[in-house]
Design a protein around this nucleic acid. Structure first.
Lengths: 207, 207
DNA sequence: GACTTGAGTTATAGTCTCTAACAAGAGAAT
DNA sequence: ATTCTCTTGTTAGAGACTATAACTCAAGTC
């Protein structure tokens, strides 16, 4: 009788604060290693086994910290959302004293900058990498909303935000896919033109 | 001396025409099964093993027909390019007697229609699913150009094509990712607005 | 009828995710 | 201090996958 627990509990919620800190530390290490693999070989290259080996620990140990591979990926997505939102926010900070048009421009370049500097992470955000991936799970959605609030700080009309969003995202994904490069197109000038058009389309921005 | 071949040759080029036809048949069957898996679980769900089982044949047999899994995926991409180009072409056929603006609209709806009816295939096109995937390999690029020529038939200015392309692609990928749905946005009206804006931005199209 | 091709088979190596069962340390309770 | 429990690690192993190697055997060819 006694405990009757099935020996293995997926998420140990951590009783002592020390333990909790330790767990958090390890989780961060795991995610850092996962990011390294992501940067090299894309999402498919992220392997729990390989991460464990890299951390000098043996295989299944990591399942103490993440229920499964998908949960790990989901956390990477959430982190990426937060980081993107943060970069957007600092780039368009009101303290900088930019005009509405300039802030929109700053938003666009920050967006593209994130995608260029961390293409795999960007792809992770907008491309469901997993078969049974649920984009509508609670934490995912709330994380994605942080990005939306960053956008709302630049354009208050929802229609405008969405239009700008589709244009930016479309440009960036095509660029990442190498579609422009394979056509011998200078992505920089194309981007400049697109941004100008986006700014023009936004009435709030008096240049 | 004699032959010295290492017993296994990846691509048997087929000597007899009968054999060639048979091979082609089998390859098509394999691709059809792969498409079924793709439609269900995405690119990651495509398994050579599972396909073989489905065709009533045992595992490694398929390696007579495809060098490896990546080659199979690459062929799916090429086919998808061709199909998309074909649908675009028929939707914007000059025979239909549409005005330039209407043809552009038809192009846009055909584009979105393809993405909606076969989301995983669309995603396959624009999202490198494989770690060591080379988007610039010769056959891939030429296949993607068939789509570009279809676009060129609707808009002759390259800048305009690219702008329309980024907007369409951005909209469609965000829609497929469920980003609009999770925000409670009616994608149809948003799309209508985007298309109107795209048409307006194209000077050739006198409505 | 012997000989060459080609297409299938099984066996196997090596990778992966994930579960189960067990060992051992760290802290807390007594 | 000793015991007890919780936590974290270990190895073993199931099950799935890609891919190679070595073989069997049918179909055609000369």
């Amino acid at each position: 009788m006694t405990s009757s627990k099935p020996t293995t509990e997926p998420h140990t919620p951590a009783r002592s604060p020390m333990r909790a800190r330790f767990r958090e530390q390890v989780r961060e290490d795991v995610k850092a290693a996962a990011l390294r693999q992501l940067a090299q070989g894309g999402a498919a290259a992220i392997s729990v086994n390989a991460i464990a080996k890299q951390l000098g620990v043996s295989g299944p140990a990591l399942y103490r910290y993440f229920a499964n591979r998908d949960e790990l990926l989901a956390e990477l997505v959430i982190d990426a959302y937060h980081d993107l939102a943060a970069e957007l926010a600092t780039a368009t900070d009101r303290e900088l004293g930019l005009s509405p048009g300039e802030r929109l421009r700053a938003f666009a370049t920050a967006w593209r900058g994130f995608a260029q500097s961390e293409p795999h992470r960007y792809q992770l955000l907008f491309t469901p990498p997993l078969p049974g991936y649920d984009a509508h799970s609670e934490p995912l959605v709330t994380a994605s909303q942080t990005v939306m609030t960053a956008a709302l700080a630049v354009l208050e009309d929802e229609r405008q935000i969405l239009s700008a969003w589709t244009r930016l995202h479309g440009f960036v994904t095509l660029e990442l896919g190498g579609n422009f490069a394979s056509m011998g197109i200078d992505a920089d000038v194309l981007f400049a033109g697109e941004v100008a058009a986006i700014v023009d389309a936004a009435p709030t921005s008096d240049q």
